[in-house]
Simulated assay, not measured.
Amino acid sequence: MPDECVALIDQIIEERHRVGMTQAQLAKACGLTQSVVARIESKRARPQIDTLYKILAALGCTLQVVHT
C-alpha cells in the first residue's frame, strides 16, 4: 500500500478517535459493515474513492490534496 494511503488511513483513525466514534458507529454512518472499516483501518484493504468520501463525510472531514 502506498505511503500516502497509509498516512490517510492513520489520519482517519485519529479523527475517529478524536470525535469519539467506534468502528461500528462509523460503519453505520457510512452504510458499511464494521468489518470493512476494520479491514481499512488495519490496512488490509484500500478504500475505493466513494467509500473514502463516505468515511470522511461521516467524520465531518474533507479531503485536502497537497501538491509538492
Results as ranks from 00 to 15, higher is better:
63 L>Y: 06
3 D>C: 00
36 V>C: 01
20 G>W: 05
44 R>I: 01
53 Y>S: 11
8 L>S: 01
47 P>V: 03
28 K>P: 02
66 V>E: 14
14 E>N: 05
12 I>A: 12
43 K>Y: 02
2 P>L: 04
16 R>H: 01
44 R>A: 02
53 Y>E: 13
17 H>W: 11
12 I>D: 13
17 H>S: 13
22 T>C: 07
32 L>E: 13
3 D>Y: 03
4 E>H: 00
23 Q>M: 10
6 V>Y: 03
40 I>S: 02
43 K>Q: 12
12 I>Y: 10
50 D>G: 09
27 A>C: 03
31 G>C: 01
49 I>P: 02
18 R>W: 10
14 E>L: 13
58 A>F: 03
66 V>G: 15
60 G>E: 15
67 H>I: 07
17 H>A: 10
1 M>Q: 05
36 V>D: 01
1 M>D: 01
3 D>E: 08
48 Q>T: 06
12 I>P: 10
29 A>H: 12
46 R>K: 14
16 R>K: 14
4 E>N: 03
50 D>C: 08
5 C>A: 14
32 L>C: 10
1 M>T: 01
66 V>N: 15
64 Q>C: 09
59 L>E: 05
16 R>W: 00
9 I>K: 04
43 K>H: 05
21 M>L: 14
49 I>V: 11
20 G>E: 10
56 L>V: 14
15 E>M: 13
52 L>G: 09
10 D>C: 01
68 T>H: 10
4 E>T: 04
27 A>T: 07
40 I>V: 10
58 A>N: 05
38 A>M: 02
58 A>M: 11
28 K>H: 09
26 L>H: 02
11 Q>S: 13
19 V>A: 09
16 R>M: 06
47 P>W: 05
47 P>I: 04
50 D>T: 15
22 T>D: 09
22 T>L: 03
58 A>G: 07
14 E>Y: 02
61 C>S: 11
67 H>E: 12
44 R>T: 00
45 A>F: 08
27 A>G: 11
32 L>K: 11
41 E>Q: 07
31 G>Y: 01
10 D>T: 07
43 K>C: 03
20 G>D: 15
28 K>I: 03
59 L>F: 14
25 Q>I: 08
50 D>R: 11
24 A>D: 12
40 I>H: 03
39 R>M: 15
45 A>V: 14
16 R>C: 09
22 T>P: 04
66 V>M: 14
23 Q>C: 03
36 V>S: 00
26 L>D: 01
41 E>R: 01
40 I>R: 06
